[in-house]
Design a protein around this nucleic acid. Structure first.
Length: 337
DNA sequence: AATTTCACG
DNA sequence: ACGTACGTGAAATTA
């Protein structure tokens, strides 16, 4: 429609029409917004609303996923047929889909238990950065705390905007942020993004040197490790091709963090499975979604199991800063959050 | 079969 | 100068 001069093409020469592209074109012509709206609706209808009912098992009357332990390179589980690790939650219509996941009968309630900021806690622990560790030891909101330090204001003075920037940088650090990437994720210019990253590293100097150390280790050994010794091999870490080398450098930082979180929740799952059997509980562990476990809890067992599940997850791996778990319960998966 | 888009952490 | 944030799976489209 000639909405822009140089429309971006995909590698096969098609016009790129992903969400990011269309959002930037939305102001140019009213149909673009309609297309985005349509896409959102079709995604939910085809992938979830029309498909999940076909997955109900003849005998159990329930939906059963399959978890794989040897698919994700970081050691995470993956879920398929159907994937129950990507059930919608972010949009209002998506939330309606999540409501469809309910307890087995009226004697049960769903309990969701999720680790709070597990990846940031892990990078604080693994790097030994005292500044970041102390925020967690004080029980602070880490994004707010980061904002206060980076923007040099009191905790109470942090604005929503400042916290939002800090949150984006905190996550970016785990992914191997670049000034370009941060500028894409925010409304900051590239130079502003660069400055924010520099200030961030001045705030957490030990974190900065840890990241460099991880990359150095990968260059020397060709792999990196999680806290339990799971390795990810990085065959391009010494490549002369800057593209693939940079990708491996980001993975050298990310894989130990994401993979260690996966290690920890697996320990918790094994312990909880064993204690549910040992106690002859009726309640069952149903789902794992990377940093969250979902349980079907019999009403008679709720009071006893809640603290046991929380404690087991929080103590699955001992660190110098706390691992905390948030619990929620409800008559559907949305309410349990 | 490969690509594109988009759902989740 | 290069291209650019980590990990997945499903559905629809294109080749």
């Amino acid at each position: 429609m000639k909405l822009i001069e140089k429309p971006k093409k995909t590698k096969t020469g098609q016009y790129a029409t992903g969400e990011e592209i269309l959002s930037k074109l939305a102001a140019k012509h009213p149909i673009v917004k309609n297309i985005l709206e349509w896409r959102g609706l079709v995604k939910l209808k085809n992938t979830y609303i029309d498909s999940l009912p076909n997955e109900v098992h003849d005998v159990s009357g329930r939906i059963h996923t399959t978890y794989s332990q040897t698919v994700a390179a970081t050691g995470r589980l993956s879920s398929n047929n159907p994937n129950l690790q990507n059930i919608p939650i972010r949009t209002e219509r998506g939330k309606q889909v999540r409501k469809a996941f309910v307890p087995r009968d009226s004697n049960y309630t769903l309990l969701a238990a999720d680790y709070s900021q597990i990846e940031l806690r892990l990078i604080a622990e693994m790097s030994g950065d005292e500044e970041m560790k102390e925020s967690f030891l004080r029980g602070e909101d880490i994004h707010k705390s980061t904002a206060a330090k980076v923007f040099q204001v009191e905790l109470e003075e942090v604005t929503r905007e400042q916290r939002s920037y800090a949150k984006t940088v905190n996550f970016g650090i785990i992914y191997g942020v670049s000034a370009f990437g941060l500028s894409q994720q925010t409304d900051l210019s590239r130079s502003e993004a660069k400055e924010l990253i520099e200030t961030y590293y001045e705030t957490y100097p030990t974190l900065k040197s840890y990241i460099a150390k991880q990359v150095d280790f990968a260059r020397d050994h060709g792999y990196v490790e999680t806290i339990l010794g799971r390795r990810r091999y990085l065959k391009n870490i010494n490549s002369r091709n800057a593209i693939v080398r940079s990708a491996d450098e980001r993975n050298a930082v990310n894989a130990p963090v994401q993979g260690s979180a996966a290690d920890i929740i697996k320990i918790a799952m094994i312990k909880i499975h064993e204690l549910l059997i040992a106690g002859s509980y009726k309640s069952k562990m149903l789902l794992q979604v990377h940093d969250e476990l979902v349980f079907d809890i019999h009403h008679d067992e709720m009071d006893i199991l809640k603290p046991i599940i929380q404690e087991t997850m929080e103590s699955a791996y001992k660190m110098s800063i706390p691992l905390t778990v948030d619990l929620g319960q409800g008559n559907n998966w949305l309410e349990a959050h």
